[in-house]
């Protein structure tokens, strides 16, 4: 049977309880093509069942909810099933299985968690803030995984006196720090007024980026390996211009990424040019 759930932790744990003894269970958050005769059910979150399930799983592995949080943040379509197989193994063996990397379920879950953590780490460096007229900072981003709020503690610790907004344009949500509290909020489109000198600082940064490069040692492949092209779109230094313009298809790693529109800030920043279609 296929168990559809909404991607939340409570819904996953409820679906887990239902599907645990089902040998052919498939847990998914997205659309799935049913085969002939295959049954499906949409599982709604049940707070009581979820709490019971969580408590039991924590008895087997006290850190497993941290893993679940990271797995459910993944942008992979099969994240529900990856998490299900991993947690079914914990429940079956009644102990942590994190180190058993020779098992398929553990290897897949561990790889999924690694990707989420890697993206969160990368974005700590690749996020670019713009200063608004109010003095607050605004950064648009479109991560593959839902890591927006994982970045909050990092930036709160280093910019404690400056309010900022991390806007996940793909998921239409924002992680906000108002100088005293941090919270998540839905945010479709942002209209911002930039500080008067924002363009000048961006221009200085572009100058710096161009000057620090050593043209006689060109290693574009290495550059793209460390800084994948999908993160370039919100960077004011515009790495694609530095290596010659790229075709539209190469700029966007996935269809989802191609849909993300860059916000059009008012003020001194010029509107970004419309993307070229293939």
């Amino acid at each position: 049977m296929i168990y559809f759930f909404d991607g939340s932790k409570a819904a996953f744990l409820t679906a887990f309880l239902l599907a645990y003894r089902d040998e052919d269970a498939l847990l998914t958050t997205g659309s799935h093509q049913l085969t002939l005769g295959q049954k499906s059910v949409f599982v709604r979150a049940d707070a009581q069942k979820a709490a019971r399930c969580e408590q039991r799983l924590l008895q087997f592995d006290e850190h497993c909810m941290r893993d679940l949080d990271l797995l459910l943040r993944s942008g992979e379509e099969m994240r529900g099933q990856t998490a299900f197989l991993y947690f079914r193994m914990i429940a079956a063996r009644k102990r942590p299985v994190r180190g058993e990397l020779a098992e398929n379920a553990v290897a897949d879950a561990s790889e999924c968690i690694r990707r989420v953590k890697l993206e969160a780490h990368r974005l700590k460096g690749f996020v670019r803030f713009m200063e608004c007229a109010s003095g607050a900072l605004y950064a648009p981003l479109s991560p593959d995984n839902d890591v927006c709020d994982l970045l909050l503690p990092h930036f709160c610790a280093r910019l404690p006196h400056i309010p900022f907004v991390l806007h996940d344009v793909r998921r239409a949500k924002a992680a906000v720090w108002d100088g005293a509290h941090s919270f998540l909020a839905p945010l479709g489109e942002a209209e911002i007024v930039l500080a008067a000198d924002e363009t000048a600082w961006q221009s200085l940064w572009r100058q710096y980026y161009a000057s620090v490069n050593i043209p006689s040692r060109e290693r574009i492949r290495q550059m793209k390996g460390y800084m994948p092209v999908r993160y370039w779109k919100f960077m004011p230094e515009d790495p694609s211009a530095a290596i010659g313009d790229l075709p539209f298809a190469a700029r966007n790693a996935s269809d989802a990424a191609a849909q993300d529109g860059a916000p059009h800030p008012r003020g001194s920043l010029q509107s970004p040019p419309a993307p070229r279609r293939p």
Binding site: P215, Q222, M223, Y226, P239
Partner: peptide
């Protein structure tokens, strides 16, 4: 933390 990479592959 690496913040960007230049075309010479350096961070």
């Amino acid at each position: 933390c690496c913040h960007s990479f230049t075309p010479d592959g350096r961070c």
